[in-house]
Write a protein that binds this DNA or RNA. Structure first.
Lengths: 207, 207
DNA sequence: ACCTGAACACCGTTCAAGT
DNA sequence: ACCTGAACACCGTTCAAGT
């Protein structure tokens, strides 16, 4: 055909279509041709708007992360509570787009991270983490967040455990009354980490 | 040609060659043809020994994880110290094969995990974690481990942070005297988690 | 400037044919 | 039983050609 009056391809629409496709059919079946089909254009024309496939994946990943909700602006809360809320919210956002996880694992999205890091850094300081360790604790929290999302995206653990060889593990797997889901685990892990984060500089920590 | 007297393809050799190739040139450039070339056979013949590419990737991932060292059998140590050693050792093993990480993210290797889980489960019990929460704490530790490895495999953070918008983060990024490397972060994170893991059942925890 | 069909060099996998 | 070359249906990307 040829050049239309209005461009057929809009960057943001492409990212949305890509994320939608990845969420619905998985990253494995996502291809430039499949995306082009969904958009009603040819695969070749996508290269007029994007450098390569990676740029589209980055955009879709960014989109998945940015749609994090913003609850908890209610009553004043402790810095620890606020950090927990931020981390758990980010986890929920990740969880809603499990297909995009492999992309995040290979291509970090630092543009997103900076917003979260900015506020969490301040909260960490408030809760008594010394300035020189703030970045390290940010990395710890981010690692826990990503790892939790990655593990949860796997199919459930279903390994056979012999009671005689691994008695404790076997008993624990059988005793599932108190088992926590991923969001609950993340919350108590973050609380435990924050409780331990002040240990190195107790004087800076009120209470 | 035809059938040789001795089989040309041995499963374990294939896994070794695959891991070596992935470590050296990255998962992106790893293909059945490249692997076959390295082995001096044809790509088609690999399908006589493996169901598909995924089976080979699983074997390579398993190989990478199994080569975890076994230090620390020296003087008797606290359960916490032993857990720290196991987790950090597993991290080091992961770190030595960063190319295989994307494979681990998509395909969990539970056969490996069970060995680690068996001993860590026992140690968690010893350090005061109630039976019903052992599996949850195993998941937390595993999430932290995987997330730390994933984050570290990325190129370093190099984002621009404006001092006026994010004063605390900016100051912390500038103050790098105390910054910890990934293994150090993992160690203090695991210690903080273990310290917090007993809180729910303090009676079970001896001092 | 923007989009297209056709082509290039790949890829995982299958299969008839060889010994 | 084990290995092969050739083929199939894909893939990301490029490019001359169209308007």
């Amino acid at each position: 055909v040829g050049r239309p009056k209005e461009p057929l391809i809009v960057r943001d629409h492409v990212f949305e279509a890509a994320l939608e496709l990845i969420d619905r059919r998985g990253i494995e079946r996502f291809s430039m041709r499949a995306l082009a089909d969904a958009l009603g254009v040819s695969a070749a024309s996508l290269y007029h708007h994007f450098h390569d496939k990676g740029e589209i994946l980055d955009g879709a990943a960014h989109l998945a992360l940015v749609t994090s909700r913003d609850r908890g602006a209610g009553e004043p809360r402790s810095p620890e509570d606020q950090i927990v809320t931020i981390v758990v919210d980010a986890y929920v956002a990740l969880q809603e787009h499990p297909g995009i996880l492999p992309v995040l694992v290979r291509r970090a999205d630092r543009e997103f991270a900076i917003v979260v890091h900015g506020s969490v850094a301040r909260l960490l300081r408030q809760s008594g983490v010394p300035e020189g360790l703030v970045v390290s604790w940010l990395d710890i929290l981010e690692g826990l967040l990503i790892g939790t999302a990655v593990l949860e995206a796997h199919t459930e653990i279903d390994y056979r455990v012999e009671a005689t060889t691994y008695p404790v593990l076997h008993a624990s797997l059988t005793n599932t009354d108190q088992t926590l889901d991923a969001a609950q685990r993340l919350e108590i892990a973050v609380r435990a980490l924050l409780a331990g984060s002040g240990d190195r500089d107790p004087a800076a920590r009120p209470t």
